[in-house]
Amino acid sequence: KYTPEEIEKLKELRIKHGNDWATIGAALGRSASSVKDRCR
């Protein structure tokens, strides 16, 4: 489950890194597949 803060951070990282899920996941301390599924 993602907190509202994590979702905000995810949005920012998505703008910065696009679909680089590995980088976004690492920044959030989550797996690449987890953040990818969250963005769907």
Rank of each mutant, 00 (worst) to 15 (best):
S33R: 13
D37C: 07
Y2K: 09
I7E: 15
L10F: 10
W21V: 07
K1F: 14
N19A: 12
L10C: 00
W21I: 03
G25F: 00
Y2A: 04
S34A: 10
P4G: 11
K1T: 11
A32C: 03
G18P: 10
D20F: 01
G29Q: 09
R40Q: 15
K36L: 06
T23W: 02
R30W: 12
R38G: 12
K11R: 11
G29I: 00
G29L: 00
I15R: 13
I24P: 05
D37T: 14
T3Y: 06
N19Q: 12
T3V: 00
A32M: 06
R40N: 13
L28N: 03
A27K: 13
A27C: 08
E8K: 08
S34T: 05
H17E: 03
L13F: 14
R14Y: 01
P4K: 14
S34D: 15
K9A: 10
D20H: 02
S33N: 14
A26Q: 15
S33K: 14
K36E: 15
E8G: 08
L10G: 03
P4Q: 15
L10W: 00
G25S: 08
K36I: 05
A26K: 13
L28G: 05
K36V: 06
R30Q: 13
T23K: 13
K11T: 13
K11E: 12
D37A: 15
A26H: 10
G25C: 02
A22R: 10
N19P: 12
Y2P: 04
K16L: 11
D37H: 11
W21P: 09
P4Y: 07
A27E: 08
N19C: 13
P4H: 06
G25I: 00
K9T: 10
G18C: 08
K11Q: 15
R40M: 14
L10T: 06
E12M: 12
K9C: 06
G25R: 00
P4N: 09
E8N: 10
I7W: 08
T23P: 04
L10Y: 03
L10A: 06
L28F: 02
E6W: 00
I15P: 08
K1V: 07
R40A: 15
A32F: 03
T3M: 05
I24N: 06
A27G: 06
A26M: 05
A32T: 08
S34I: 02
S33L: 10
R40S: 15
I15M: 15
K36T: 05
G25H: 02
I24G: 04
R14G: 02
C39N: 02
L10R: 02
N19G: 10
H17L: 07
R30Y: 07
A22F: 06
K9Y: 06
W21M: 05
D37P: 01
E5Q: 10
K36S: 10
A22N: 04
W21R: 05
G25Y: 00
V35R: 00
I15G: 14
E12A: 14
E8Q: 12
A32G: 06
R40W: 11
T3A: 00
D20C: 05
S33I: 08
R38T: 15
R14V: 11
L28Y: 00
E8V: 09
R38F: 15
G18W: 03
L28K: 01
I24C: 07
G29Y: 00
V35Q: 03
S31T: 14
C39G: 08
E8T: 12
C39Q: 06
E6P: 01
D37I: 07
N19S: 14
S34R: 00
N19V: 06
S33T: 13
S31M: 03
E5V: 09
W21N: 07
G25A: 14
D20A: 05
K1C: 14
T3W: 00
I24K: 03
T3K: 06
T23F: 07
T23I: 09
I15K: 14
K1P: 04
L10H: 04
A26G: 09
T3E: 01
R30C: 12
R30D: 10
T3N: 11
L10N: 03
D37G: 04
T23E: 13
K36C: 11
L10M: 02
P4I: 14
K11S: 13
D37E: 15
C39D: 07
H17P: 01
A27N: 09
T3S: 12
R14P: 06
A26E: 13
T23C: 10
K16M: 12
R38L: 13
L28D: 06
H17Y: 12
D20V: 01
K9E: 10
H17D: 06
S34K: 00
L13S: 10
E6D: 11
E12C: 04
R14W: 12
S34H: 05
C39V: 07
S33Q: 15
K36A: 15
C39H: 07
N19I: 04
G29S: 05
S31G: 04
S31N: 07
A27P: 02
E5M: 06
R14M: 14
L13W: 11
E8P: 02
N19M: 05
K36N: 08
S34P: 04
I15E: 15
R30L: 11
L28R: 01
V35S: 03
R40H: 10
S34V: 06
R38V: 15
I7Y: 09
A32R: 03
K1E: 01
A27V: 12
S34G: 05
E12Q: 14
I7L: 14
D37Y: 03
R40F: 11
E8S: 13
I24D: 03
A32L: 04
E5R: 06
I7A: 10
T23A: 15
R38H: 15
L28V: 10
I24R: 01
I15A: 15
A32H: 02
E5H: 05
G18Y: 01
L10S: 05
E6H: 06
R40K: 11
